[in-house]
């Protein structure tokens, strides 16, 4: 039976104001069990205050074969980084 449990991806938010981050995956029979398993496996040491789970099969991933087309064109568009602005002294921590 355990071999038939689907895999779930687990996302944990470590504190308010931050976003959920992928922390790993686990097996569970359904969403409810996935939340509880995530709580037991991934928040034992106070890692989080909120859990998302999503069945792995529902995630669509980009194909490594498309990496060149998807990501490389961004490499020479340095003007997209806000590094050319002169910041006024009053603005700190940008």
């Amino acid at each position: 039976m355990k071999n038939n449990w689907p895999i779930w991806e687990v996302f944990i938010r470590s504190k308010n104001g931050l976003s959920h981050k992928h922390v790993g995956s686990l097996h569970a029979a359904d969403a409810e069990m996935a939340i509880e398993n995530a709580r037991d496996v991934y928040t034992r040491r106070s890692e989080g205050i909120s859990i998302w789970v999503v069945e792995s099969k529902n995630i669509t991933a980009s194909s490594p074969a498309d990496a060149a087309a998807l990501f490389e064109p961004a490499a020479d568009k340095i003007y997209r980084h806000p590094t050319f602005y002169i910041l006024p002294d009053e603005v700190k921590h940008m």
Binding site: M1, K2, W5, H27, A28, V41
Partner: peptide, 12 residues
């Protein structure tokens, strides 16, 4: 435990 996840849960 019957599965790794339940092993950890019951130990918790």
């Amino acid at each position: 435990g019957p599965a790794l996840e339940q092993d950890i849960a019951i130990t918790n």
